[in-house]
């Protein structure tokens, strides 16, 4: 199932982006995801990214396996979603969002 593979990859990257913003906005969360002192909170961000990707993939595969999906439409959605994930990873953007959450 190509759509399940695409969506799972995108979900993993969005989880990475959201985890990164949450770590910037909340010091307690940042400490909680520091699974390895050597690489700091990056360790937890990677674990959440990989867990989201590899857990969502079989689930989506199972849920979508008998559905007729428009590949063109879903691939377009994947590309738009990927662009959003890239923008959210740009430091001035994710820092501004984290600061806004902190300030709010």
């Amino acid at each position: 199932m190509a759509v399940a593979a695409l969506l799972a990859a995108w979900l993993g990257l969005m989880a990475l982006a959201i985890t990164n913003i949450a770590a910037g906005a909340n010091d307690g969360f940042k400490t909680a995801i520091t699974l390895n002192s050597g690489i700091g909170p990056y360790s937890g961000k990677e674990v959440i990214w990989l867990a989201t990707w590899f857990v969502s993939w079989p689930i989506l595969h199972f849920v979508l396996r008998n559905r007729e999906l428009d590949l063109k439409k879903w691939f377009g959605a994947f590309l738009v979603g990927l662009l959003i994930a890239v923008v959210l990873m740009w430091p001035p953007v994710f820092e501004a969002i984290a600061d806004a959450i902190k300030g709010g």
């Binding site: 995108w10 990257l13 990475l16 990677e46 990214w49 994930a85 890239v86 990873m89």
Partner: peptide, 8 residues
């Protein structure tokens, strides 16, 4: 972060 995007 962008280096991680290559894998998926």
């Amino acid at each position: 972060f962008i280096a991680l995007f290559t894998l998926p």
